[in-house]
Design a protein around this nucleic acid. Structure first.
Length: 819
RNA sequence: GGGCGCUUAGCUCAGUUGGCUAGAGCAGCUGAUUUACACUCAGCAGGUCGGGGGUUCGAGUCCCUCAGCGCCCACCA
């Protein structure tokens, strides 16, 4: 009696069927009651739900899921959690656009608020902070549903009972606890410092969030008259509008053109402020005139000069990117001609950078201080990666994590980590070597994890930022804007003698860098069983952010790496090998691809991309993946239809030399694929397994048809059946991590358990194997090819009967051919 | 400026420590025709392995050098 197989097996609908079944049977449930050494834990990136559903998700998470499924079959208790990154700027931006609103923290809460029916992009409705946060929560819930649907349809073997969100209560508590630990250890400090600032988002930006963009600009040569001497010093600048914030002119200490000028003064044009000529080796004699003006602040070099040369501060640009009011009679400027300075500055005040620049250039031309015409150039300018205008540098109060003083230890952590592929370690190293500021973790935004601190206000109304009041650990998470510090009550908020809550939220990386602590439920018994994680899974563009930040937090908190291995995936390029981006409009959404080709086919494509290698979207590859799934269905149907469900077959029934040789090849394949998987080389597993499987179908199965049809108890017949059964079982399991749906389907035709909980194939189940795998199988296939070639040349059917054929070969091979 | 990666058939890519005549899939061409599979099967054709030099009995593979593409990092006046 054959196994019951469907008459017309199909790949369509497998996703829905098996996703539901896996839910019912808790197939991927992590068993909390295991020893650490039996666990394989994976640290997965919480996807930013307010971003696009992106084919990149499919690519990198599939590669991780394949690894998770392999280790699960190897008998590990696999911890494969997933959370959603829903806090921070991307969510706020999305809410603003989606509902047409803007957060104004000064507005009160409106409990009856409903978002506008039709959002007006241009005139956004101002709403209070709490209403705004409610909209954020509402929208992220919708987004999370869409993401979860994608991940499930894709066959991610996630234990959904571990699902978390980075703005959820537990994650907030973990973030605040970890922050307070850093504060107690002195790993974090609050400081007013010049900070890179996005004038549209009106928030500070960390070094990790910067990107350079080539921008058109122009050199303007400005003549500064010397004070108390004849002549001028000429300076090239791309930011003439900052002239009023000039605090010095700098040149290289060994530059002979300026050696006699150091210590003298020059007078700024238009504003008549006397500034010193100073020396610093960062001044490049090759650039411009060799002398540069130092402004507070035009770029990060200005910050270095200002700090190292102890220069004064003349702040002009406000948090909104517009020029602030300035008093040129004040000591800050001590202009030699305040009236004229004030008149010139009137053209700048309240204007943005672009407007101020043209006004300044006009004035300089009129006053005769501009030498020649501006010379147009393009040069790299720092932007916030999500921003639209160049960053300014604004002095503001921020929380910083000490990273610079741990540079050497952090480099050593990078060396200690195993990177797949190995060369990705260079990216980490060059990032850590290039760090130039501590990690700024505070953001002047609303939807995120607040800092669990308040500041006392003295009787005079001055805030004491040096003695923050911290929340008690057992009360976390807290919201300092509505909770009160111990010993105070709400009536004292923002009052002399009272307190103020820290107004900021944490940078999104300050939370997601705790993903092992959040997913592993830091503080519970689970954490000891999963930490440090065995594997971190992520794409290469967030090495400097997520990976670096996670290493920092783990190093400071636990003095260890957060994970032992890092599997770094490449980027997805569009079919023309261009990087996908929203602005180019070439972003591919994954669900239609899954619907067209099937999840297993899309996974096949993802698993054929090697770790770290950028891979183009290739629907052709998905079609090949689909062919493989269909082949698996049909081959399984054929083999199982020939077997007797009641017949016990084992490796010892495999007696024919040809059959034993096939098993030897299978054994070789098992050894190789197992080793490859252990090295995270899932792509090689796929390539090798696929190659032998296809040969098995086209050659072996065709060859043994005659024997397999045999009804009798002939030994060779039984040998063929045993081989078919064993080989099918092995192939189904080899493909299970990569194509979980079809393999589960075909496995279910002859097994009760899930293939994903069955054992990864081993050599032992094949019995004693002959040496020299392929020594019979391969010549037979070659001979077959010759025969087929002859038939093809003769334009005959492959079914044509060969009447005579002379083969000279060793007897065993000849024997196999005779069949 | 420093660093990393890539460059093999028309396309997408394998090629593990140097070793028979350089592989696969797709596309192309020629056939087969339906008792597992037309989302099939068989066959054919297609490459001076980016250029140059070197080491070696032997180099796609190791070394040097040049070029192109992509990326990472950098104090970018």
């Amino acid at each position: 009696m054959p196994f019951p197989v469907p008459e017309k097996p199909t790949v369509d609908g497998l996703e829905a069927t098996w996703t539901a079944r896996w839910d019912d049977q808790d197939t991927y449930r992590f068993n909390r009651d295991t020893r650490r050494e039996d666990v394989f834990s994976i640290d997965t990136p919480p996807p930013t739900v307010s971003g696009e559903l992106h084919i990149g998700h499919v690519f990198s998470y599939t590669q991780g899921d394949v690894i998770a499924r392999f280790w699960r079959m190897r008998g590990k208790n696999v911890f494969y959690p997933l959370g959603w990154d829903d806090n921070g700027v991307p969510t706020e931006r999305r809410v603003e656009n989606y509902y047409g609103v803007r957060c104004d923290p000064s507005l009160p809460y409106d409990p009856h608020f409903t978002p506008p029916e039709s959002p007006d992009e241009r005139h956004k409705l101002s709403i209070g902070r709490r209403n705004f946060v409610e909209l954020c929560e509402e929208l992220t819930k919708i987004d999370e549903r869409a993401f979860k649907h994608l991940f499930r349809t894709l066959g991610q073997s996630v234990d959904w009972s571990t699902e978390y969100t980075t703005v959820g209560g537990f994650a907030r508590g973990v973030s605040q606890k970890a922050f307070l630990h850093m504060l107690e250890r002195g790993d974090v400090y609050l400081r007013v410092a010049p900070t890179l600032w996005d004038v549209d988002f009106r928030m500070a930006v960390s070094q990790a969030e910067l990107e350079d963009r080539e921008q058109p600009s122009a050199y303007h040569r400005i003549a500064f008259p010397r004070v108390g001497a004849e002549g001028t010093i000429e300076v090239d600048t791309t930011r003439p509008e900052l002239l009023a914030s000039c605090v010095a002119v700098v040149a290289h200490p060994e530059d002979p053109r300026f050696a006699h000028l150091f210590g003298t003064f020059v007078r700024t044009p238009l504003y008549s402020v006397d500034v010193p000529v100073v020396a610093h080796e960062l001044a490049d004699p090759e650039k411009g005139t060799g002398a540069a003006m130092i402004c507070t602040f035009g770029d990060t070099t200005d910050v270095t000069w200002w700090r190292e040369l102890n220069l004064p501060t003349r702040t002009l640009i406000g948090r909104d990117g517009r020029f602030l009011p300035a008093d040129f009679t004040s000591a800050e400027f001590s202009s030699q001609d305040p009236g004229s300075a004030q008149r010139h500055y009137a053209a700048l005040e309240g204007r943005n950078v672009k407007q101020a620049r043209s006004a300044t250039v006009e004035a300089l031309k009129i006053e005769g201080n501009l030498i020649g015409e501006p010379r147009e150039i393009t040069h790299p300018v720092k932007f916030y990666e999500r921003g639209e205008r160049p960053l300014e540098i604004v002095a503001s109060r921020q929380w910083f994590v000490r990273t610079l003083e741990h540079r050497e230890e952090l480099l050593a952590r990078g060396d200690e980590l195993r990177w797949v592929p190995d060369f990705m370690r260079h990216r980490y190293r060059s990032w850590v070597e290039g760090l130039n500021t501590d990690w700024n973790i505070s953001r002047q935004r609303y939807f995120g994890v607040p800092f669990p601190v308040w500041y006392p206000i003295d009787e005079a109304g001055e805030v004491d930022f040096d003695s923050p009041l911290t929340a008690s650990h057992d009360l976390l998470p807290v919201d300092p804007s509505s909770d009160t510090p111990a010993g105070y009550d709400e009536s004292q908020r923002d009052q002399p003698g009272g307190f103020m809550g820290d107004p900021d939220i944490m940078d999104t990386w300050a939370t997601s860098s705790l993903s092992p602590q959040i997913a592993g439920r830091w503080g519970t018994d689970l954490f000891e069983r999963v930490f440090p994680m065995d594997l971190r899974l992520q794409a290469h563009e967030i090495i400097r952010t997520w990976l670096f930040a996670t290493v920092v937090r783990s190093h400071l908190e636990f003095d260890s790496l957060p994970f032992k291995n890092a599997l770094i995936s490449g980027w997805i390029l569009d079919p023309n090998r261009k990087k996908m981006s929203k602005s180019k409009g070439n972003v591919v959404t994954p669900l239609p691809l899954i619907e067209n080709h099937g999840a297993d086919a899309v996974r096949y494509w993802a698993a054929s991309g090697r770790p770290g290698t950028d891979t183009a979207i290739d629907e052709g590859q998905m079609k090949i993946g689909r062919r493989l799934t269909i082949k698996m269905l049909n081959a399984s149907k054929f083999v199982l239809g020939r077997l007797d469900a009641h017949e016990e077959l084992s490796a010892s029934d495999v007696t024919a030399p040809m059959d034993r040789d096939l098993l030897a090849l299978l054994g070789e394949l098992i050894t190789e694929t197992t080793a490859s998987f252990e090295q995270y080389d899932y792509a090689r597993v796929l390539e090798r397994a696929e190659s032998l499987f296809w040969s098995f179908c086209d050659n072996y199965v065709e060859l043994v048809k005659a024997r397999a049809y045999g009804e009798g108890e002939d030994r060779d017949t039984k040998s063929a059946r045993a081989t078919l059964s064993l080989a099918l079982s092995v192939f189904q399991r080899l493909f299970a991590p990569i194509q979980p749906f079809v393999t589960e389907e075909v496995w279910s035709w002859w097994h009760d358990n899930s293939i994903h909980l069955s054992a990864w194939p081993t050599l032992a189940e094949l019995g004693p194997l002959p040496e020299r795998p392929g020594s019979i199988y391969q010549p037979v296939c070659d001979a077959l090819a010759v025969v087929r070639g002859e038939k093809s040349t003769a334009k005959l059917s492959q079914r044509a009967i060969v009447t005579s054929m002379v083969v000279s070969a060793p007897s065993e091979i000849a024997e196999a051919l005779r069949a």
